[in-house]
Amino acid sequence: MVLNDADRSLVAEIQGGLPLSSHPYAEVGERIGMEEREVIERITRLQDEGIIKRLGIVVRHHELGYTANAMVVWDVPDEQLDEVGEKLGSESCITLCYQRPRHLPEWPYNLFSMIHGKDRQRVLNYIDAIIESCGLEGIPHKVLFSGRRFKQRGARYQ
């Protein structure tokens, strides 16, 4: 899908949040010179096309008690990557699972998963359970807990 100027102005207008009022789409439309119906149609299409992944609440997970945030990285043989990625991605406590490039020799890990939990011990227990249920005993991994968070904001669009 190619975004036109009207889509772009809509994307920029709502990026910081929807108005908290009875007719938020009408209010958005008023600001950018669009009918409510058109705003609704365009947002629906942006969702269908996957440009809007999700509409609604975006939480600050740290403030909700998810303070143990672990990046668990795996050094998976290339030929097993898809299989292991799918398995890990289907585990309920994994919040993200991506393939990323290795940087040898420093960084041999090519599969990245995130687990957000309320304390470190619980996260470590999840990881043990995942290794067992996915049969990952032979795959080297490393757990990188987050320490300080310096900055958190969404990406901004013009």
């Binding site: 990026q15 996957g50 440009i51 809007i52 992944k53 509409l55 600050r60 403030e63 969404g154």
Partner: peptide, 16 residues
């Protein structure tokens, strides 16, 4: 109270 980051869209940056 900053329990929510925002109420609105989560975009796919690459598709944008």
């Amino acid at each position: 109270k900053r329990q929510l980051s925002r109420f609105g869209p989560l975009y796919n940056a690459e598709r944008l």
